[in-house]
Design a protein around this nucleic acid. Structure first.
Lengths: 290, 290
DNA sequence: TAGCATTGTGAACATCTTGTGACGATGGAT
DNA sequence: ATCCATCGTCACAAGATGTTCACAATGCTA
């Protein structure tokens, strides 16, 4: 929206390979001494960072794609709480570290309850600020074991996180980054329905605005590539008014294959397969398909 | 910016349908005063917690299946760092909050780098400890959300919130979003009568205008689908002038099955089953049915 | 039993959602 | 500087879902 910092996009929250990803930080503060010292440290660490001197609208913060934000509530003035609450609501994935002057226990508790991840009282040592930011960010990327994950298979496709790519046999689906993130996310949900909002916030890192069609568009692109590579299967199922569900289902009439064995009793729906083949719209499978 | 900590001061951001999951906490400390006050607070919150007085081997901590651990490094003695590092390595998902006496910046940074999620300096207010523990735990269980809920069963139907759908055996009821929300709401009420106004406001989010028939219409749609999928049962009962009640009742003459035992007094109405089968209308239950 | 109020029904109508193809912006690579 | 891949937004069309309405059926009260 407003501006980007420098380099291309920072690793999406979900993403990240093994190496310590570069962090992208913003500091919202006016204390020039503090800023100067902190900036110097951040530079040395190689973290992308920028300094904001005045309350930035939550939307603008969203556009910055930050890993974390260090903020002095004093800069925000009277609407500090409101601002904080809105920001936390819009960016559940953003690490927020309040670093501000003397405060009461009640204030700190309130800030933390509103969604702040940490609260540091000034004066403080910049090294501690950095350590706490790291701590906050560290927790965010939980399933760090991406590298160790075995490849996931569903129907004919094999999703290999180590290559950021999906395959059918030896052929690559040639997925782009977003497409891969999407299929990975869906497949990881193991047949659960994921709401659009959740998909969006996990892929893009912030809250979806009403009317955004990005998820739909990427689902279509993914479907096209899946269809081309594995025409006899359906993988992504639409749940009207809700979102999408990933489950490999064979279109071959003689049997109903699903990536989860021991699952679908035949005659799962009373609908004929033909209709399934015609549309992505989908009825639920048996509950025990999980 | 002044405020006190009153009871329901700030709703947890996670708020919404799912009741705040019970947390399981351990406190490793010897400061009896601190422990006593903190325990009292934890009790009131309904969190499961236990107090440990001496360094517990990491394996033992694993077995406790904690959400978070509050620890005073002083208890650990000289091997505190080593212990901390081992624990963090073994349980990357465990929230670790160090709560200990005066320390240097270097010590705090070291602790945080080793894997601690937060560091509180004593003396401190127990409310702040709790708020920081919540903050630490908050992000850890984000993606779970709705998936945690076990499926609800009533009569022949199984309501699965992870699929936004209800099933009878292997067959889906093919509910739309609103229909599903309705059955979910009714079923969650466990046999209580829900007034129209309440149903409306919980599903639509605003208050019902007089004369709005939406709830009735959706009840009918739901009934149709339930009837088709499970003809020998009645699930939604009308309470004239009030609203609806969800309870699985078998139409088979030999016995009256109800999903909520002890709710419907036998011979609950003096009506014969035949009439029940003919209409949805339903007399009030005995007062204790509430 | 009559009469009014409440609820059940079916269908028409209004909205909202999703699938799709195309386009312009952006950033990296050649 | 130019070319290419990717992304995200639009506008449109086809469907699905949600709402409203008129009327029938049922319940409650006088």
């Amino acid at each position: 929206m407003t501006d980007s910092i420098t380099a291309g996009d920072v690793a999406a929250p979900s993403g990240q390979g093994g190496a310590a990803a570069t962090l992208r930080i913003a500091v919202l503060d006016r204390d020039s001494g503090f800023i100067q010292v902190l900036s110097k440290r951040l530079d040395r660490l190689g973290w992308e960072h920028r300094v904001l001197a005045s309350p930035v609208p939550a939307d603008a913060v969203v556009a910055m794609r930050l890993s974390a934000l260090v903020v002095d509530l004093a800069v925000l003035g009277p609407q500090a709480w409101e601002w904080l609450e809105r920001l936390c609501g819009a960016l559940p994935d953003l690490g927020i570290v309040v670093c501000t002057g003397p405060s009461t226990v009640a204030q700190r508790v309130r800030g933390l309850r509103l969604g702040a991840d940490d609260w540091i009282t000034k004066p403080c040592h910049p090294e501690e600020v950095i350590a706490r930011v790291q701590s906050v960010v560290r927790r965010r990327r939980r399933p760090s074991g991406r590298a160790e994950n075995k490849p996931v298979t569903a129907g004919e496709v094999e999703i290999r996180s180590d290559r950021f790519q999906a395959f059918v046999g030896a052929a690559s689906l040639d997925l782009t980054r977003r497409e891969f993130e999407l299929i990975e996310l869906l497949a990881a949900a193991e047949g659960r329905v994921l709401e659009r909002e959740e998909i969006y916030s996990r892929l893009w890192g912030y809250t979806m605005v009403r009317g955004d069609r990005s998820v739909d568009v990427f689902v279509r692109k993914l479907r096209q590539k899946l269809e081309k590579a594995s025409p006899r299967w359906r993988y992504i199922h639409t749940h009207f008014g809700i979102g999408y569900r990933f489950a490999a289902e064979s279109l071959d009439a003689d049997r109903v294959d699903v990536d989860v064995p021991a699952s679908v009793p035949a005659g799962w729906d009373g609908r004929d397969q033909g209709e399934l083949a015609r549309t992505h719209q989908d009825r639920q499978l048996a509950p025990d398909a999980l």
